[in-house]
């Protein structure tokens, strides 16, 4: 498979737990060098998707290719090149973190523990402490270190900043940007909208086991920037808004509501031919956009 194709290619992935649907017919590509955010309410199927990619779960149907390799049959080869931070994990409580991390390094067949020490220093993690004696945030750091310490080119993380204090979160975002600059690909689920907005290049949102939207963050920001609502003195013909860059148009008698993804001036000039009773321009934040997938049934 070509080195230019998607790093992760998910086609029609379905995973059922008996009668419970974990994820349904998911199509998703993640490209080299990008940070892909994975959003969705509790139970949406994020962890299921991630654990299926790692072959920890057997998929019900569909296909997952990573580096062009089959996620199940070529799982070992794939895992040589992946770092994984589970959403919920443990380590041996009675051993020092360094011992555990060295053991995990040896499983990766990776000799050099330099990066491990370096990462621990960067995230202020004391490797001499027993894992069981660490606080939740420090355990999370141990998880982060083990995901990155063997220099893998693809990192998959399930809620990576859970438990980190705000300063550490910022340090972690900075670290992710550096990793991306080195060409690493990152796929991470999250419940922190601001985090996705801040570090991710793209976001995929799922809900009730189904994919709702995949979009570039900067495109979303632009699109979500303005919501225009106009009330006219009489019923308005929707064709008035037949302008490139006007999206999500809803016309209800005298009222029209739309998202402006173009120059506002164009729209204002066009509607000025009609009598306007009221007009409001709302600045819609990305947060609010994300929230619609958490609250409204069916999503956007």
């Amino acid at each position: 498979m070509t080195e230019n194709g998607p790093v992760i290619e998910i086609r029609g992935l379905t995973k059922n737990y008996g009668d419970v649907v974990g994820i349904k017919d998911l199509d998703l590509n993640i490209h080299r060098g990008e940070i892909m955010g994975f959003l969705g309410p509790n139970g949406a199927g994020k962890t299921t998707t991630i654990r299926t990619c790692l072959d920890l779960l057997q998929k019900t149907s569909g296909e997952v290719r990573i580096f062009g390799l089959d996620s199940h049959h070529d799982s070992i080869e794939i895992r040589r090149r992946i770092g994984y931070l589970p959403g919920d994990f443990g380590m041996y409580n009675d051993l020092p973190v360094r011992t555990i991390l060295r053991y995990l390094l040896s499983l990766s067949g990776y000799e050099d523990d330099g990066p491990m020490e370096e990462l621990a220093r960067r995230f202020a993690l004391d490797l001499d402490k027993r894992y069981g004696s660490l606080s939740k945030g420090n355990r999370q750091k141990a998880g982060i270190v083990q995901a990155f310490m063997a220099g893998q080119e693809l990192i998959i993380m399930d809620e990576p900043t859970a438990g980190l204090d705000p300063l550490m979160q910022q340090e972690f975002y900075e670290f992710l940007r550096e990793e991306r600059a080195e060409g690493k690909t990152i796929f991470m689920s999250s419940h922190i909208l601001a985090e996705v907005e801040e570090v991710c290049d793209r976001v995929a949102i799922i809900r009730d086991a189904e994919l709702q939207v995949v979009e570039r963050i900067d495109a979303l920001k632009e699109k979500m920037g303005k919501t225009l609502e106009i009330e006219f003195d009489k019923e308005i013909d929707p064709s008035v808004f037949d302008i490139r860059g006007v999206e999500g148009l809803e016309v209800d008698g005298r009222r029209a509501r739309m998202i402006i993804a173009c120059d506002l001036d164009q729209v204002v000039k066009r509607v000025s031919e009609h009598n306007i009773v009221n007009m409001s321009l709302e600045t819609f934040s990305l947060d609010q956009f994300f929230m619609t997938y958490y609250s409204r049934p069916g999503g956007g």
């Binding site: 072959d55 920890l56 895992r79 992946i82 770092g83 994984y84 994990f89 041996y92």
Partner: peptide, 9 residues
């Protein structure tokens, strides 16, 4: 723990 162990090759 298995999640981490089996994420290694």
């Amino acid at each position: 723990k298995m999640d981490i162990i089996l994420s290694k090759p």
